[in-house]
Design a protein around this nucleic acid. Structure first.
Lengths: 213, 213
DNA sequence: TAGATTGTTAATCGATTAACAATC
DNA sequence: TAGATTGTTAATCGATTAACAATC
């Protein structure tokens, strides 16, 4: 922990949620909020909120609380929503297309610049305003445009191989939706494994557990 | 902790991953595995694996390790993959359709039985082998078929209202993809909020952090 | 000033890891 | 039997919560 140093991943994982709630409050025209009131809305403790925010600096003011707009902006800056990380999607099946259409990359500091699929029948088809390219073109595209994030929506068998290749082409971050636990040996590479199936399976567990009682 | 009692959510969240790895090992024809070898493959400690598995019972054998096939089966039973929880999807936009096509519900103890959307132009269109119904039909459908899980792929503004209505119709579990933190006051209701945007935002954070160093 | 609420330190709680006796 | 590896208890570590002095 510390003002600039290493923030624990527990804290980092909570930041986007703070950001969302503050955005909502701002929309609702709420100017200031105390850690206690925010804690009630977010269903966590006021202590934790103050502890979390103080990893990055003293954003609040004693006796007053936090100014919603500036706290929202500060957390946005910490997360990097003002940045523009060029992003490509590998795999234009149902999931790849849905992510391209459904996720607002811009509001999360990213910009979708390319979609690739190995199926030549998809080449040229557009998703939103982006044309699907054949995977053979990835190399040339990367050398020209230097994307840094790759969203992997491909079968698990090819994931590791493609990821390794992409690292060689300058990709530094993977948002991995394949049913495979990607890990990259290179230092300086970031991986976020999503695993929607695992998420459903914990729901199945808890649902069945419920019925037992 | 305890053989049948309350298992901590940290453990539960790891179970699907154990299940996946053991399935892979089984496919590869590996018969037995020690906690140490599994720990190397999964990149966690052998201690943790033994600790986790012992929440549910002594599946191993001293001096031998764990029998891959039976451990895989046991964890499957714990998770409930042998069950069949009827599931409906609310919202047949890009994401709803992608989930319908992309997720193997059966292998996770669920069965997709209906898809609904408020846009009448989608009514009748099929996703996989399931016809999209209009949301007006949800009530009748639930009374007839008694689904227990609802996958919410709808805008955040309508989520709470629809969820409350679905609880009244017998839904007990929500797999929520809307950009809204769903919480249900009723006891005995399970919610899994997914938030793909938050996942991307942590990746953005870590990617920018990387560049700073 | 008095009241409110932060920032921060200390106490608690839970999860992870280490150690080792039990046992196959 | 000897070697290997579990199940389980104890030690450590980290994260959360509580408390309170600082201060707006």
């Amino acid at each position: 922990m510390g003002k600039n140093g290493n923030i624990s991943s527990s804290v980092i994982k909570r930041l986007p949620r703070y950001y969302r709630f503050l955005g909502e409050l701002q929309k609702q025209g709420i100017e200031r909020i105390s850690s206690r009131e925010l804690s009630e809305r977010m269903k966590l403790t006021a202590s934790q909120i103050r502890q979390d925010l103080n990893c990055f600096g003293g954003f609040g003011q004693q006796g007053y609380g936090y100014h919603v707009e500036s706290l929202h902006e500060e957390i946005g800056k910490i997360l990097g929503v003002d940045k523009c990380l060029d992003t490509i999607i590998i795999g234009a099946g149902n999931l790849g297309k849905a992510i391209a259409m459904h996720i607002n990359f811009e509001s999360r500091g990213c910009r979708l610049t390319g979609i690739f699929d190995s199926n030549p029948r998809l080449t040229g088809e557009t998703v939103g305003d982006i044309a699907i390219r054949h995977t053979d073109e990835i190399e040339e595209f990367c050398k020209l445009n230097h994307p840094v994030i790759a969203v992997l929506c491909i079968p698990k068998t090819s994931t590791q191989e493609i990821a390794d290749k992409l690292v060689g082409l300058g990709i530094r971050s993977f948002w991995n939706y394949s049913h495979y636990d990607l890990s990259i040996d290179h230092t300086g590479i970031v991986v976020e494994n999503v695993h929607l199936g695992d998420s459903l399976l914990t729901l199945t567990y808890r649902t069945n557990k419920l019925a037992e009682e």
